[in-house]
Amino acid sequence: MADSNPVIDIESLSKTFGTRRGTSHLAIADISLKVGDGEFVSILGPSGCGKSTLLYIVGGFEAPSTGAVLVDGKPVAGPGPDRGPVFQEFALFPWKTVLGNVMYGLLEQGVDRGQATDRARELLAMVHLSAYGNFYPKELSGGMKQRVAIARTLAYRPKILLMDEPFGALDAHTRTRLQNDLLDIWERDRKTVMFVTHSVEEAVFLSDRVAVMTRSPGRIKEIIPIDLPRPRKRAELLVNRRYQDYVVEIERLMELPPEEAQAS
């Protein structure tokens, strides 16, 4: 399905960082991945394997060392409003109110203030934060901040969402709620999503496919299609045999000893 007409086409991508000592460090090696229109793909892998790096390159924030990323057939040359990032650290603008943060992208794109306000309020309602428009980010809890960050990105209607462990810093309860919210939003307008996570359950629950990466230098070890019915309900999935099998299978995959000795 993804191969017919991919929205994101990652072609033998690798990234080398220069270190302080003058040596070079291969972060990701030869990654190829195609993501189809409206597909939800999760990336799993041990810490430091280059998941964020991969996402940043797709976002156009960092340049690849070799290989290329095509979005809608065009090579990525820099960030653009077709790809909306959501970072683990929220990265909200502290000097703007919640509403100001959500409106920011629209105003910068020349949407008039009235329309931008309406759209921002709509999004805040969607993430259950209508009452918090005039709050500053520092006055919100971690989960609320992350919902604002998601709303800020959704506001300018990116075609693709690039989410880097968006729920990683949250407690289990908040995390579950936000996963449900995210799925609701996704069911509604079927964006293409690349979703980095450490949690196998989260990946299986959300995704159409799960890409498992190897230890540094990161390569794609295996891509597992998740064939579970949608819309998914957490309570139902937890007792679903296939769901459990996927989780166990992927967890095993991640436990396997690294194929090669730890590099550099």
Partner: peptide
Amino acid sequence: EPKLVWSARAAGVSQTRALFTI
């Protein structure tokens, strides 16, 4: 934090404008 700048750049803001605003 570079991600503040990235968030702005992703919304379509130019490098120079991000520098002098964000």
